[in-house]
Write a protein that binds this DNA or RNA. Structure first.
Lengths: 127, 127
DNA sequence: ATTTGATTACGAAACAATTCGTAGATAAAG
DNA sequence: CTTTATCTACGAATTGTTTCGTAATCAAAT
């Protein structure tokens, strides 16, 4: 298997990808210890997931030493874009604006965040 | 089964919910004909899905005549909010702002949409 | 050298989602 | 009344995801 075709990681895969995106190179144990904080699953479960992700081409690994070192192959931004687009389509009937308002309406965003979004929008419309 | 506990409809279920949210009351055939436009699946597949959704309490139906009439039980806004929150958490490490910018950055939003969002944000921060 | 501990590989079970075929019921058309 | 079409119910196959137990390997510690 291979090819960076799969922009549709499963939920578990996404959890792992997020860690790899943030931390860079990780062993299975690194990833597992972070995952453990939020959910409980055995070590071999994490291992298996990462092995499957390898088969799918979502990650690559350096297997030169006994303890393998993994890194993400999927691009973070592209994946995020793809998932957001899908949600806009699936859940908000194609209206980005509706999603944005829904996201910002409910105390999810701080004043600072809102200000930074405004600045961002100003930049957008002045182009 | 019952209870409006399930805010996590599957993808197929979401497709159906969207139709019910928009159209209101629908027969299986109504739903199926709309679904067919975008995907191909047999009639009994749609039927089965809706029956499962009934068991899960996602929809209700009037079965007084031979052809049953379905309606959504899940609240559209709450479901949208839940899914957006989950995405912010799962995909954007908890930052609503990052998601919004990602959503708006890529030509997904028209000038009009962006303007309406700006107005919306002004309303928010003046509270 | 032997034991201990951590690691990978692998198969399989458990679960969930999707798809569809078939049968039986009901209504409409002839 | 009989045929035809449409509908629901249901079981089962298929596919995908998640979980974990067990065995084999290797390295470090004793």
């Amino acid at each position: 298997m291979a090819a960076i075709n799969n922009l549709k990681p499963t939920e578990s895969e996404l959890e792992i990808l997020q860690i790899l995106w943030e931390k860079g190179n990780c062993t299975v144990r690194d990833v597992h210890e972070i995952l453990e904080k939020n959910k409980d699953a055995g070590y071999t479960t994490t291992l298996k997931l990462m092995q499957i992700m390898l088969e799918k081409g979502l990650v690559a690994r350096d297997a030169s030493s006994k303890t393998h070192i993994y890194r993400a192959l999927l691009n973070q931004e592209k994946t995020q874009q793809h998932l957001v687009d899908k949600m806009i389509d699936n859940v908000f009937n194609g209206s980005a604006a509706r999603m944005v308002m829904q996201a910002l309406g409910n105390h999810t965003a701080s004043k600072e965040e809102i200000d930074s979004i405004k600045k961002y929008l100003d930049g957008l419309s002045n182009q």
